[in-house]
Design a protein around this nucleic acid. Structure first.
Lengths: 319, 319
DNA sequence: TTGAAAGCGCTAACAA
DNA sequence: TTGTTAGCGCTTTCAA
């Protein structure tokens, strides 16, 4: 049994001859090691827990795919759970992940609270935050620099000489939205433009439906916008369709810039200019960082900021 | 220890007084049972394996969400892996799921081969096929009736008096595509219409990009279509944009009907008429069926067919 | 109603 | 280089 274990795991030198015999026996009996027993004995399950708000969200699904691919590469398995971004569920789930003896975790959420940080620290679980960060910087994280991404997006319009630039974010309780809003505000201030509160819109979430309603109301009230910096592609499309509902269109009547470069942005017409987050990479890099943590490899940065870029398409292009 | 186990699992009667003492101790020590040890001892891990082609695909992500919600409800966890619909990987993954001692599996694939059926039977793992079925009907499955869904979609156009109805599917190796094609053909035959092979299109996959190319070529070659029955929303949008690229639009120049009722269908303009698969339910019902299998509950049907419906939107509506 | 004891199928020291 | 032994932290008989 011990020698079989050695052959299987390569944890010690085994004579070629015996190794061959063991492998023959494994073949013959179609033997497959029991990962649960192995996990109990070795205290490593080769399993990592992933908690995210909602897999059926395009962005999360793509991040997850990145996580999974790298996990597979390093022979880890993924236990997945949806939290619906509810803190109580998140904390509960961290506990069950602990019970499952996951080797580490990747955590995606909208907001990293002190309570969550504390729970991770108590659980002593290696964890990497993905697409968000811990404001206190105590937990390793992989994300983009949202403030400067929104700053760049706003500059993009300012350099075209556009005024009446709307910022259209998610809820004000959403830290990522607020970071982006700060970038927008900084760009305007640096350009000497006044901040107009009526040009700052917040949708109930990052989805299409709510954004569509908010945009419709905005236009209904007689407001006008020359350009929109939206915090997600879906939000941008919510604005687009509100404009269309009133007989307008983009880019003729409004220039639109989304966020995330989801598949939507090329499927829709006009194709959407967007700030590309390296969605897949966000997941892949998070998982890679986690493997470094788990394998005690040297780590340069515990806080990784991936580059973003603006992808120009027709929604901001006036023929 | 044994009594603690009894309190935790409710497997035997424990005096209220001792139960209270145990619970107090659990509280005090912040004790959390080790699920791995529990799994080894009881031979049940409360974990189910999910193998699907690609989580980052909208349809699968939504099915997965359905699976996960019901799994949570029954206190199961999900181990997730992507197979990219490659049979060799699928077979390999079934093996690793076995090693992980999952209690059961949900399997989503494009094609259920004999090899896969054999692997499941050898592994003796309870499994439910989701969104596909085993042609031999030996494995429980939850899906819709693709043939009659496409039949209904085609009838929908025939009843409008439409001719030149294109069928636009995925690859010919894709069983679901072929089932739908058969439904399309049956509807035409019953209506006494000739089958025109040049009106049957196959995209390289169910995604937008490839479909867009195939549609562009179709139109380039001077073919015309009055209506399109597409095998996925993305394929329908591929056709739509090919039409638009040539200055046309829907519903004016072509009536479009997609499949799946993904978020895309309402975000896009014109909003897309589509055959709604109960995507979330496909996952939820599969998982529920699996729990019945695992808990030895009575089962009426091992082969569940969920209802589909046509959701009419602007892409088939001529003012 | 509870405690004692065996054992789930491995890994990891320790000898040999 | 290999076999022996002792657990890993639970569940599940079996007695008491």
């Amino acid at each position: 049994m011990a020698t079989v274990s050695r052959v299987l795991n390569g944890t010690a030198v085994v004579k070629d001859e015996t190794k061959a015999k063991v492998q023959a026996a494994i073949e013959k009996l179609a033997y497959r090691p029991n990962a649960v027993a192995r996990g109990l004995a070795s205290k490593r399950t080769k399993t990592i827990g992933v908690i995210l708000p909602d897999v059926s969200d395009l962005f999360h699904a793509e991040v997850l795919r990145g996580i999974e691919d790298i996990a597979t590469m390093y022979q880890y398995h993924i236990i997945l759970t949806n939290s619906d971004a509810r803190e109580d569920r998140e904390i509960d789930l961290i506990g069950t992940m602990w019970e499952k003896q996951v080797d580490g975790m990747i955590f995606i959420s909208e907001k990293i609270t002190k309570e969550i940080v504390r729970t991770f620290e108590q659980a002593q679980l290696p964890v990497v935050l993905c697409a968000t960060d811990d404001p206190e910087g105590r937990i390793p994280s992989v994300a983009i620099d949202n403030e400067s991404a929104a700053y760049d997006a706003t500059r993009f319009f300012l350099e075209k000489g556009t005024s009446q630039i709307v910022f259209f974010g998610g809820p004000t309780t959403h830290p990522v939205t607020m970071e982006r809003r700060r970038g927008y505000e900084r760009a305007l201030q640096e350009a000497g433009k006044p901040l107009q509160n009526d040009l700052i819109l917040h949708a109930p979430d990052m989805k299409y439906e709510g954004a569509h309603g908010v945009a419709a109301e905005f236009l209904q009230n007689g407001h006008r916008a020359e350009a929109v910096v939206a915090a997600s592609d879906e939000i941008a499309l919510g604005f687009l369709n509100a404009v269309r509902d009133r007989g307008g269109n983009s880019p003729q009547d409004v220039l639109l810039l989304g966020f995330d470069n989801t598949r939507l942005s090329t499927i829709v017409r006009p194709e959407l200019t967007t700030v590309a987050q390296p969605t897949y990479d966000l997941g892949a890099v998070s998982m890679r960082l986690l493997t470094k943590l788990l394998l005690d490899e040297p780590i340069e940065d515990y806080t990784v900021r991936l580059p973003h870029s603006i992808i120009e398409r027709t929604s901001t292009h006036r023929g």
